[in-house]
């Protein structure tokens, strides 16, 4: 099944390219600053959070953070989160948005969530260029740990692909799923140590934190970008397993529901 999907992606690479380009274009055409919004949005979010947490609430980073710059530290946590939440939230509706393609032609609908994922990944890449530069300037060091970053991006993407297939196909049958997901993602943001350090969580609750896949992602990003030298092999392995399970489960559910898409849309 996985092999067939890869072959299909290769056969339809032109279509995939068009879909990705369309998504990128549709986001920024007509806006004066264009692609810069991909950066402006998270930067302003980060500045706001930094102001609230660092100046108003006087939060201070512990030694485990790897940097004294709250802004940089926050940016490293927020970037993967935005990648994750934007992709999943957009993918919930993606099949419904492309109703005509699905009901009136033999369209490989499984490519739609993938195209959004890839388009967000490109957005994300721009963010990372900037964070990378900021990290080097602020921390004045660049370690080989940054090579972990692509691995984390890949594992996160794998997890998201499965999740996207799952929610997008199920949302056709039960439109509430989109709404539920929005609420869940709002809560999930605070469940993930993005604006706070995991060490700030009371000892007893830290176990709960470790059930959250995004915890490993955020920690992994910080590890790679801020050069904290403590390999998260366990986290990475968990993410890998989760990514594979999620892709297989998502792929299975999508495939199972796909023959009825045209009927339901």
């Amino acid at each position: 099944m996985a092999f067939r999907f890869v072959r299909e992606v290769i056969n339809n690479r032109y279509m995939l390219k068009c879909l990705v380009l369309r998504d990128l274009k549709s986001r920024y055409t007509g806006s004066f600053l264009g692609i810069f919004w991909a950066v402006i949005h998270p930067v302003i979010t980060v500045i706001t959070y930094t102001f609230i947490f660092s100046y108003v609430l006087k939060a201070r980073l512990g030694p485990a953070a790897g940097t004294n710059s709250f802004l940089l530290w926050l940016l490293c946590g927020l970037a993967p989160w935005l990648y994750f939440s934007e992709t999943v939230q957009r993918n919930v509706q993606i099949l419904i948005e492309n109703k005509m393609l699905i009901t009136k032609s033999l369209f490989p609908s499984e490519l739609l969530p993938l195209s959004i994922l890839l388009s967000n990944m490109l957005n994300h890449a721009i963010m990372f260029g900037i964070i990378g530069i900021a990290a080097v300037i602020i921390t004045k060091k660049l370690t080989l740990l940054i090579l972990y970053l692509p691995v984390y991006i890949f594992l996160l993407s794998l997890f998201m692909l499965g999740l996207s297939w799952m929610v997008s196909s199920m949302n056709i049958f039960l439109r509430d799923i989109g709404q539920v997901l929005n609420v869940l993602i709002g809560m999930w943001f605070f469940y993930t140590p993005i604006v706070y350090q995991p060490t700030a969580v009371p000892e007893g609750l830290r176990v709960l934190l470790k059930l959250n896949p995004m915890y490993y992602v955020v920690e992994g990003y910080r590890l790679s970008l801020l050069g904290i030298d403590q390999a998260h092999w366990k986290g990475m392995l968990l993410l890998f397993i989760l990514g594979v399970v999620s892709t297989i489960a998502g792929g299975f559910i999508f495939k199972r529901l796909k023959p009825d898409f045209a009927e339901m849309l």
């Binding site: 068009c18 369309r22 274009k25 492309n98 393609l101 009136k104 032609s105 369209f107």
Partner: peptide
């Protein structure tokens, strides 16, 4: 197949 002309086309492309 022409099930409704051009229905499989994507107007953005």
């Amino acid at each position: 197949a022409l099930l409704e002309l051009g229905a499989g086309f994507n107007p953005d492309f």
